[in-house]
Design a protein around this nucleic acid. Structure first.
Lengths: 250, 250
DNA sequence: TCATTTGAGTGAACGGTGTTTACTTTCGCG
DNA sequence: CGCGAAAGTAAACACCGTTCACTCAAATGA
């Protein structure tokens, strides 16, 4: 009994992934608005109505696609982070940010879907995201971890301009994080998002054709605000003069 | 002849503005994807086909709407800037940035249209924008002017992390601007855009509910990088000690 | 083994969209 | 007044998401 029902389950799952694969192909080919149930069904040799056995509506399919794309971007960043296991927390952040940019520009339609304005029905997805399990939050979360390490090492950059009291009153549940870490994460994440979104949405085409210098400048601006690793710490780095903190190279 | 033909012209123009007004109403009510020629025609008591006497296609209508919205946002910023004629260039920038945020959050669907990813057919609009006459460039341009004044006063912030040589090679025609001014504008514009877009597109809903502290922090971070007005300059400001430059208040 | 239930898939329909084409009406101008 | 251009209409084409009634095969239980 379970044997045969498992068979059906696998078949069903295979069909569902085929649907999602075709949806993504349409996304890549025609952008977020080009995803069409009828076209998917056509490609599968099926009727559009049959797809409703697998997906409650087009919105839900797009939301699922969003989740998959968030995870894909996160996994790409994690892979880049883990490629060199000897990385400083700061350099892990830099490597991950560069990988996120690479992924974004290599997957423009997909990135438009997850970084752009919520389509009707996708707003619901973003509301779902105050749950930490959500894929969107997880993508942000992997950038929090190195910041937390920097904080533990006393190397967290200062954010003298953020009203920490007011910000603390505007945070959702996950309050286990030190407020300074949250503040640094949010300001840095916004800047990273800004340079990526501006690039992705063509907001700078009238002003600059090559935006990589601006991206790298943003990274460098962050890096120079991170104090170097303490000389007395349990690392192998040689000590540096106290006067000119000269941060680590990029 | 010209009298009556003017009459027809005016009628035609009146109909066209009615079309655009209804398009905007739909934009406000249902978002960018909710703009529909058939619905506009329905509201006007006309057939959809009749609209093609006034607009070549839906895309073109959306593009015109984009231009109008860019101009509206720019005019709002200019009005805020000109409300107090005694403003320092730095404070003009701050006032304009705050007004742009206010306009954005007060007109979310409209802002989504001009700051979000180009819809199919709107890409053409952004390509059109390397022409300086374009409304999008003009919106950016009003932020360039105060920066140019700061530069002339020797108060331009440093952007030590931007590769000026590479950036200079990636700029469109308008090269009459000093490269340092361009670099400061681009980095600041990107940061402003980032905080607005992140807020607008709900990218932070999982992390923070009140994003104004982050916006104000971005403004303060910029302001503190602007040196105070030179004491010897032809202003009425009292001189400041050289050691601690203590920038002007926000 | 046979009957039954479950699930997948179909076909048609409803209401919506942008766009084109041919036709009609209206209205200003000479 | 009559002509011609402009405005508007009706119908059609090709899409879209979604629903409903229906068929058919396969898995299940007695």
């Amino acid at each position: 009994m379970s044997d045969t029902s498992h068979r059906r389950e696998r078949l069903r799952e295979r069909t569902l992934t085929e649907i999602k694969d075709l949806a993504r192909a349409q996304l890549v080919a025609s952008g977020p608005a080009g995803i069409s149930l009828r076209a998917i069904a056509r490609d599968m040799g099926m009727t559009a109505a049959a797809l409703y056995r697998y997906v409650p509506a087009l919105d839900a399919l797009v939301i699922e696609l969003c989740t998959d794309l968030h995870n894909e971007a996160r996994i790409a960043c994690e892979a880049a982070r883990d490629a060199d296991p000897d990385l400083d927390p700061l350099h892990r952040l830099l490597v991950m940010a560069r990988e996120l940019r690479r992924w974004t520009l290599a997957h423009r339609p997909e990135a438009t879907l997850i970084f752009g304005p919520p389509l009707p029905g996708v707003e619901q997805f973003h509301q779902q995201c105050d749950d930490l399990q959500c894929a969107g939050a997880q993508l942000g979360q992997i950038f929090v971890e190195p910041l937390l390490e920097l904080w533990q090492a006393g190397r967290l950059p200062k954010v003298p301009h953020v009203d920490l009291d007011r910000l603390a009153g505007a945070l959702p549940a996950h309050g286990e994080l030190p407020i300074e870490v949250t503040a640094v994460f949010l300001t840095s994440w916004i800047r990273l998002y800004g340079v990526l979104a501006a690039e992705l949405f063509g907001q700078l085409t009238w002003a600059a054709t090559d935006t990589e210098p601006l991206f790298e400048a943003e990274l460098a601006a962050f890096a120079t605000q991170v104090p170097p690793a303490a000389p007395a710490a349990a690392t192998l780095e040689e000590s540096r003069p106290q006067g000119s903190p000269e941060p680590a190279s990029l």
